[in-house]
Structures are given as structure tokens and as C-alpha cells.
Design a protein around this nucleic acid. Sequence first.
DNA 1: CAATTAAGTCAGCACTATTGACGTATTCTG
DNA 2: CAGAATACGTCAATAGTGCTGACTTAATTG
Lengths: 175, 175
Amino acid sequence: MLKEKNGDVAPIRAAVANEDGIDFTLIELFFFAYRDFTSDPDQMLADYGFGRAHHRVLHFVNRRPGLTVAELLDVLKITKQSLARVLKQLIDTGHIVQLQGPRDRRQRELYPTARGRELALALSRPQSRRIHGALMEMKGEGRKAIEQFLKAMVNPELRVQIDADPLHRMEEDRE
Amino acid sequence: MLKEKNGDVAPIRAAVANEDGIDFTLIELFFFAYRDFTSDPDQMLADYGFGRAHHRVLHFVNRRPGLTVAELLDVLKITKQSLARVLKQLIDTGHIVQLQGPRDRRQRELYPTARGRELALALSRPQSRRIHGALMEMKGEGRKAIEQFLKAMVNPELRVQIDADPLHRMEEDRE
DNA sequence: CAATTAAGTCAGCACTATTGACGTATTCTG
DNA sequence: CAGAATACGTCAATAGTGCTGACTTAATTG
């Protein structure tokens, strides 16, 4: 037995093939694609002293104005403390405003201001351009296929959040 | 003029439509898809005290055994210091070994051990299963379209890294 | 031999995220 | 109506990942 106590540290010189039928190619592409997809807004955000978290908050508040804090936490899947700082900064800089909930006054409904709307659009513009360009490089009816694929990548129990068209979403989707 | 010094903080109550032709639907889906795509390995990694960065290093060392540190930095687009901590942990735990470069002895070629190979496979298994499941939900020849799309999402100047099939990549792709 | 390069390391910092605890206002329930 | 539950905000402490800049060692290159 030539094994060390910490296990066999002999180098494996062969690259992973598609062992066990694992699709390393698409896994890797998904990583690269997302890395570059987020790089454009990340650069802009740096000018504001913001990070990626600010973008996400801004995005969903623009997508679903009137969101409550609890709903936002649910969509982002982060904790209250993680959101707190980011949200406070966006409010302090006049990108988002809070209104007391009309039915339940404990709630704070979140709305973008004109400035917040503009920033959200500016951040999304290069991302949309990148997506549009990628679709152009494909043949014909690509967009539908991509939408289907991405939606199918999301955990089934979370697909209610997806809300491809917010205008068609009813209140009952949430609980 | 009713504007405050910090700008107009009037709430915008309308959800963003596809203003300026921005495809918010796909932007949002890409976010959700990637979030869930990384959630499975993230949970496993927690058992080892590792994070997502460890996974990425492990992935590329398994994909291209013999990578040097400099090449790895170039692929990951992070700094030496960011890599240092993560790489050291993977070496200390016997997942990766370093061999002195045969031509240039300053270089350290990185190889997975059996343990490192196993962990890389284990981490990628749920991701590949998710991708495979998503492709199944689409019609017929979806995989090719998805590969095309994801590749097109990557910055053109970085596509040389992509290396869809490492066995076909020649040394000249790097500099 | 001098300059450059590959790698490792140190110190300090920023951002995002975590858990747990606690306070306050409001609403719901028995 | 009193007490429980809820929505939100905040505090303290911690972790993981990333950054910049500076420095050392060893090896290669000119």
C-alpha cells in the first residue's frame, strides 16, 4: 500500500471526458455566458458604488412596482440583512421609494423613481443587446427555444416566481 | 418646481414594459436559471467548507489537467490573491496536486487527484442532470441551439477559452 | 550578469451573504 | 380587548470571494 494518510495524491493526467454522461461542455458554457452577461452592468454599477445586488433589487422593483419587502426577499432568496443595506442605499440615493401598504400599514411597497427606472433601463440595455445579438447568431425561431430552456432550468417549485409577463400575473400566484 | 434637491422621488406605478426593446423576460430567466443551476453544487460544497470558487478551480483543473497557475488565472479572470486561498485549500485537502513544469521549472502544472476527480464529477452531476432535463422539455434538436446561444453570449475575444472539446484544442490557442 | 517571468505571500479593504437577537408598529385571533 | 403573530428595521458577528499594491524566491532569457 503506497497511499499516504491523506489519500492518493497521484496526478490524473487525462482530461475529463463525458464520464457518467456529464455534459461538461454546456456546464462550462453556462458559466462563461453568465460571467460575461453580468460584466457590462457590473462595470456601470461601480460608478455608483453599487454592486450586483443593487441591480437585482432595482430590476425586480421595476418589474413589479409595489412589491413588498417580504416578497422581494422571497424572489431574491436572500436574507433580510443582506437586503437591508442594499435597499437603504437605493432609497437614500433616490432610486427607490417606499410607500406604506394601503391595506396593511406594516407593509412597505417599493416603487422605482424616475431615476431608478432610468438606471434599471441603462443597466439592462447591454444585457438585452447581448441576448439579441446571440439570438441573431442562431437560426430562425431561437428565442422561443431559449426561453423554454431557461425556464426549464429553474426549480419547478419556483417557476411561479418567473412571471414571464408580469401583466398577466394574478395575486393568487403568491400566498 | 416641486422637485426635491435629491431629485424627483415620485413613485412610478407602472411595471417596465419592453421599453427600448429591452428583453426583460430573458434577462430575468437567465438570472433565475443560473441561480438554480449553481444551487445544487453550492449545497454539496458547504459540506467541505468550500465555496463556488473551489468548484470552478476544480472544474478547470479536471477539464485541462496540467494547466499552469497563470493559465488558470486567465480562464477564471480573477487575481492571483483570490485564487491563492482557494487553490491552497484544494491542495491541502488532496484534491489537486502541483507538478513542476517540465520545460519551465518555475511553472506549476495543476492536476486533479482521484479525490479531486471524484468531487468534480459529483458536483457536476446535478448540473448536468438539470441541463439534460431542461433539454428534454424542449423539442428535438435543442442542444445544438442552446450550445450556439450560450457560446454567442460570451465575449467574442474570450471565445478562444471556451474550448468546447479540450481534446481538439491546440497549444496555440493560448499565448 | 541583469532583466524578466512564474509563483507564492503579506497586509488591508470592499461587497455580498450568512445567523441570531431584538424592538416597534400593526394586524389578527381567541 | 389581550395576546400572538406578522412586517419591517436594526444590531453584532462571521464567512466567502473578490480587489489593489508590494515584496520575495526561483528560474529563465537576453
